[in-house]
């Protein structure tokens, strides 16, 4: 997933971003309201983690502004304000979930997964394409019941493709979901990652699931 983390505490932001990246997500960081505004205007995120008390422009303002503009990106509020009134207000103004500090990083991830899933109209945390199942919670992948071991980056790529089966995704889209604002060092990084994932998903000559649309990008589906 490509995530935006808006948090003014440097240490917390850096640590959470590190943990999310380690789990294969592309994370952009914003230290205040202004940076967050710019990041959202430039990029398309799967979800935003938003602190409420921010310098320059507070989280509630940003939330209201984004929702007013029709931005549907799932937003999870992460704040030290624990009063019920604050939570209700945040949710009423268009946030998808609310997490009070201190929190477990696993819970943050599970909640992010849930709000993204809800946004895609999915009921459970398992994506199914043909005989392939992708469990987003346990981050495990099986093809015809046989477990496939993937790296965090490969899993992130699979998640990005499998969330939109039948849709053609451009290299740039995939790249931004995988690497965020970091520029990928190699221009063919996406192609290489797709190649590696494709091989792992089709062991012993099983039918391929990732198909190349020449000049367009890639599509994830059972049949060509």
């Amino acid at each position: 997933m490509r995530l935006l983390l808006v948090e003014d505490s440097d240490r917390l932001r850096a640590t959470v971003a590190h943990a999310l990246s380690r789990l294969g997500h592309a994370v952009d960081e914003a230290v205040d309201g202004r940076e967050a505004e710019i990041a959202v205007s430039l990029n398309d995120y799967d979800a935003i983690v938003l602190d409420l008390m921010l310098p320059h422009r507070n989280g509630i303002d940003l939330l209201v502004e984004w929702r007013r503009q029709g931005n549907p990106t799932p937003i999870l509020i992460l704040t030290a304000k624990d009063a019920i009134d604050d939570r209700v207000r945040g949710l009423a103004l268009g946030a998808d979930d609310y997490l009070v500090k201190p929190f477990a990083i696993e819970e943050l991830l599970a909640r992010l997964g849930a709000i993204v899933r809800r946004r895609h109209g999915q009921l459970d945390a398992v994506l199914r394409v043909g005989d392939l199942t992708v469990d987003l919670t346990s981050r495990s992948v099986k093809r015809a019941g046989v477990e496939i071991i993937l790296t965090a980056r490969e899993f992130a790529l699979l998640e990005c493709l499998a969330r939109r089966p039948g849709h053609t995704l451009t290299r740039e889209q995939i790249e931004s979901h995988l690497y965020g604002e970091e520029s990928s060092p190699l221009s063919n990084a996406v192609d290489a990652a797709v190649y590696a994932l494709r091989r792992k998903l089709s062991p012993d000559g099983a039918p391929p699931l990732i198909h190349t649309r020449r000049g367009l990008g890639y599509v994830f589906q059972e049949k060509r």
Binding site: R11, L12, T15, A80, V100, P102, A104, I105
Partner: peptide, 18 residues
């Protein structure tokens, strides 16, 4: 007071988990 403790505790918790 609780609020002031929440952010440093969150930092410490996430750092420890990581």
């Amino acid at each position: 007071a609780a609020h002031e403790l929440r952010t440093p505790l969150a930092e410490l918790r996430v750092m420890t988990e990581v």
